[in-house]
Write a protein that binds this DNA or RNA. Sequence first.
DNA 1: CCACAGTACCTGATACCTTCGGTTCCGTGA
DNA 2: TCACGGAACCGAAGGTATCAGGTACTGTGG
Lengths: 297, 297
Amino acid sequence: MSPITPGSRTSPPQPGNLTLLSTDPAASRGGRATGATRRPAEDAFAADGRSTRWADHREARRAELVRIARRTVHHQGPDVSMEEIASAAGTSKSIVYRYFADKTGLQIAVAEAVVLQIQGALEGVLRVAPTPREGLRAMVAVYLEMIESSPHVYAFVTRNGSVESGGPLGHFLDSVTALVAAPFARGLTETSDDGRRTARRPEAEPADATSARIALAESWAAGAVGFVRGAGEWWLAHRDEPGSPDREELTVQVAAWLWAGPVGLLARERRTDDAHPPTEAGTQTSTAHTSTTQEDR
Amino acid sequence: MSPITPGSRTSPPQPGNLTLLSTDPAASRGGRATGATRRPAEDAFAADGRSTRWADHREARRAELVRIARRTVHHQGPDVSMEEIASAAGTSKSIVYRYFADKTGLQIAVAEAVVLQIQGALEGVLRVAPTPREGLRAMVAVYLEMIESSPHVYAFVTRNGSVESGGPLGHFLDSVTALVAAPFARGLTETSDDGRRTARRPEAEPADATSARIALAESWAAGAVGFVRGAGEWWLAHRDEPGSPDREELTVQVAAWLWAGPVGLLARERRTDDAHPPTEAGTQTSTAHTSTTQEDR
DNA sequence: CCACAGTACCTGATACCTTCGGTTCCGTGA
DNA sequence: TCACGGAACCGAAGGTATCAGGTACTGTGG
């Protein structure tokens, strides 16, 4: 492959922002020299053209590498080495390492691309049928479609390389969780389950209650994503066995479960008791206290 | 540590069978010389004393290594190398590799130990309060207790090394899923949600309907485990933030969600419609068909 | 105003280091 | 003779260093 000269201005610098969910601290691992730190455009000094001239080229090249990595993973499986990816890109490892700090950086970049695509698909569906019920079903559908259409990329993106990558889940699942939590948290405050606004708690809510409600939404979202993940991976492994549902059946089933669970429960308890915090502690709160693990023996 | 000579008969050879869920194909990876293949007791030849002499020593040593590995992971984190584990055991890598085929074999063995422990704790709780509702709560509680008391071991056991390890989930999650699916599948056929027997479909059910019901139970179990996993890992990462619930609150919440979801849904639809398959396809079945991923571009 | 030297950055390659999973070999002891 | 146990060894993979180019921007002298 001939070297891409910066003057050629090959492709437009990739749609929207790749920094979705940039609040994540480890997102900075994505690229070592993305330019956000040393771009002199906002600097006091005038922009040195020798520095700025590579900006869009870098972006394009990086996106290209992400694309190639994704394709390679799709074909070769999630265990591809960096050398394989580099040679698939017609270059050598050092180039890849120039754009991504390490392998998890590349993984994060691929995950961001996939999340962006999921987000797009989701928005497309929701623009057609914007009921919350349908939104949930669309999320499940999109997730399962993705998992089926490219299980290798899914595995690559889902896998968490080491512990020290911020959260315990990979960034992909984190992003998806945030994607799911946002409308749910909104619905938790504003809308009822039939889509009509009810103006719950319009004002004068203590701050800790707010954060508790947000935490509630996030924990549910994490669990819901986990549910879809678990059911999806189970299905991926068992879908050839007799009696296993096909994707659409599973989609409907999982969406129904999730819908009947938290959303319906919240709607029900809101209908009956509003001041009561939504822990639904109807049963006793005594934990098992079985002291399950004694690792230190 | 002094070498354990085979005649010493140190510890009893670990309670019950370690071959829990031995239907799993990759469970044979657990140990290269566990004896299932070359134990001469069932062989045509008479038991050679020189061979049988080591049998219990092997078992004890293996269990000891599992214990040490677990302890080491608990302290050093899930990224310990085999050499670290070996030196923690006061020996060298080759010994470890004599008892475990590879690192995932060791991982599986540790996972089996943990699952065994979870199972024991679960049975203890259920012997006290054997209602299904309480069973679900106990499962969630045990899982979250484990995840909290030793996140490193949890991470070690949960992580799936490569793709070619049978299922996409690690054996730990597979085992836990089976653990959860079993009572649920039983309850799906026999008991109602209030614990009274209803004798549903006593006979003359087509075989495919049976397998479909089993698949339904398993998919729900996989999803439920995923839900607990997702919520638990989210909680592990966010529990220090304001508004986050403590473990007991989360336990109650998650159990309520899961209970209200599938179990309540099944109970509800059983109450209304029995012949109708439990997909609850009240809404339209048209999938999104957004064709989310095009990896091959 | 313009050519030329210098500079800043990129590309691509090869060799190298380190870590770690896994294997081989050999001595030893019951 | 058999298994044990240690230590050296191997190969793969992530990641780094350094090299030789190459191209466009910048400044300065004629």
